[in-house]
Amino acid sequence: MSKLLFNGSVEKLYSLALRLYPQPFRDAYAPQMRQTLRDALTDRVSRRPYFLNLIARDLITSIFKEYLSMFRELYARPALIFNAIILAGIASGIALALYAIPQQVLRNGANDPQIQLATDAVARLEDGAALSEAIPAGNVDMARSLAPFIIAYDNQGKPLASQAKLNGGVPVLPTGVFDYVRQHGEERVSWQPILGNTRGVRIAAVVERVGGAHPGFVLAGRSLREVELREAQVEQMAGLTWIGMLALIVIGTLAYGWLTRSPVQRLATSI
């Protein structure tokens, strides 16, 4: 009697658990699955604790598998996946452009005052102005200030005059920059000066060649701190736009896949 009661309870619980399967699968196989359970419970040879354990594990794994299988059938259609990949590619391209274009505009714009400062200083030096006249005294702290500044170097790259200091000294540009400017007349670089233990200072630098009787170089620079903050905001906005577009594509693909499912799937999911 108690065995019958126990079997009945197990069957009831199992019937409830069967509701967790996808509806098409449930409609097709739930009666047979219940019958299989009943057969196992009434089978004298079957070891009941072992079988109940097996049923519990099977429920978890097979429910997951059946949903995965249903999902695959609904959405693993080449045209649907191809469209989603194309749309994701377009969205990624747009997001990349949304980041790269403003980033380039911001970065190039960061050079604007320096181009004018360097050009003017070079013109004055080439016209024979004294160093102190072409580069008026300044006291810009490169680590903290956002003000533009000028540094004059001799032909060997040794600092001659500077409106800015870093840790009390005038940082020296890498020799490669001087070599490039010697050949091309001008270079625009993001410079990370290292002097003492200062790290993380990044400068938008414009370096121009000084000709004439006293050849050398003029560097006009400005901290990139604010520009980089704006670049980070642009990056964040582009990233959010990208994620948003991808989410829309996923939702759209799922909705389209569902609406255009085959007549057989439509019948099965509407029962």
Binding site: Y21, Y29, Q32, R57, L59
Partner: peptide
């Protein structure tokens, strides 16, 4: 179904344990 499950679980069936979900899937 149950006969298949039972047979699969014997040595000659390969000793494969499967529940009704796996079987009918």
């Amino acid at each position: 179904g149950y006969a298949i499950m039972k047979e699969a679980n014997t040595p000659k069936g390969g000793c494969v344990s499967m529940g009704p979900g796996t079987l009918y899937g």
